[in-house]
């Protein structure tokens, strides 16, 4: 669905250099701190910026040859951009109808009603949550095969986030050949939605793992200095000095649980893994 190989882009001292793949039927998450390069990656994929090097293939086509017809199969949410705030939902409908061959107007209208979006109010007067909902609705209302979503749940409360995530799950269930690339600061969203996750730091992919593996096999181990000196370090990915001793990130939780019964083993979460991958030291 989407293959990025050695994508490079420089802005001053920042250098993006990443490779990733999004397979059909999969929801792939991209996580990282602010300024890690997530939005730059999205922009390069969408042709909004010119990469300095590397290859991007979207839906089997080189991104440079990806034309307006091909874009019919793409649904996009950008974190800081959308339809002009001077338009209303009612204005957007004929625009979408004119742009997309398969715009599903009844579905769009039904979702607008369901989410309680005012149809005759200027978008610039919408709340952050309403804007976020509208962006996702426009991305999924034209039978796209690939969704590229940059922070789609930003600014939403828990209930609204859950509704949107449900909408994305339904979108995936309708066709097994669809795929989603999504970034989010809210790791809980990614844990429940994504099949695999890429972690980005300072323009580089520092970890790629299936979500199930990440949640089941990754853990943070907490220990004092004496235990740290003797513990098996083969499966420790990162370690970090703490006031009580050391925190270590492992991808072999069971090994440490079984062999070191007195060790504090904290179940891995995306937040914990990000923290350790970025702040910890590789052994």
């Amino acid at each position: 669905m989407l293959r990025i190989e050695n994508l490079r882009k420089s802005y001053g001292t920042f250098q993006l250099d990443c490779s990733m793949e999004i397979r059909p039927g999969c929801v792939t998450g991209l996580v990282g701190q602010n300024g890690a390069g997530k939005s730059t990656t999205f922009k390069a994929v969408l042709g909004l910026i010119s990469p300095d090097g590397g290859d991007i293939r979207i839906l089997g086509k080189d991104s440079r040859a990806f034309g307006t017809k091909d874009k019919q199969e793409l649904g996009v949410v950008l974190s800081n951009a959308g339809f002009s705030g001077y338009l209303t939902v009612r204005d957007i409908i004929p625009v979408m109808d004119g742009l997309y061959a398969h715009f599903d107007k009844p579905f769009f209208l039904e979702q607008v009603r369901k989410f309680g979006l005012p149809d005759n109010q200027k978008i610039k007067e919408f709340s952050t949550g309403m804007k976020a909902k509208l962006k996702v609705l426009t991305a999924i209302s034209h039978r796209a095969r690939l969704l590229v979503l940059d922070e789609p749940t930003a600014g939403l409360d828990v209930v609204a986030r859950d509704e949107l995530l449900e909408l994305l799950r339904e979108f995936m269930e309708q066709d097994e050949n669809r795929a989603i690339l999504v970034s989010s600061h809210i790791s809980g969203d990614l844990e429940t939605l994504c099949d695999d996750i890429y972690m980005m730091h300072e323009g580089k992919i520092i970890l790629h793992e299936e979500t199930d593996v990440l949640l089941d096999d990754y853990a943070v181990l907490k220990m004092d200095e004496s235990l740290y000196d003797t513990i098996e370090k083969r499966y420790i990915l990162r370690s970090r000095k703490e006031s009580f001793g050391y925190s270590c990130l492992t991808n072999q939780k069971r090994f440490y649980s079984e062999n070191y019964p007195k060790l504090a083993v904290i179940k891995g979460s995306i937040d914990e893994v990000i923290m350790m991958m970025i702040r910890g030291e590789a052994l």
Partner: peptide, 16 residues
């Protein structure tokens, strides 16, 4: 109006 709130970037993700 298109440029308002980075709207141009979004426009070019549409079939445009």
């Amino acid at each position: 109006y298109d440029e308002f709130d980075n709207g141009s970037a979004f426009l070019f993700t549409l079939p445009v």
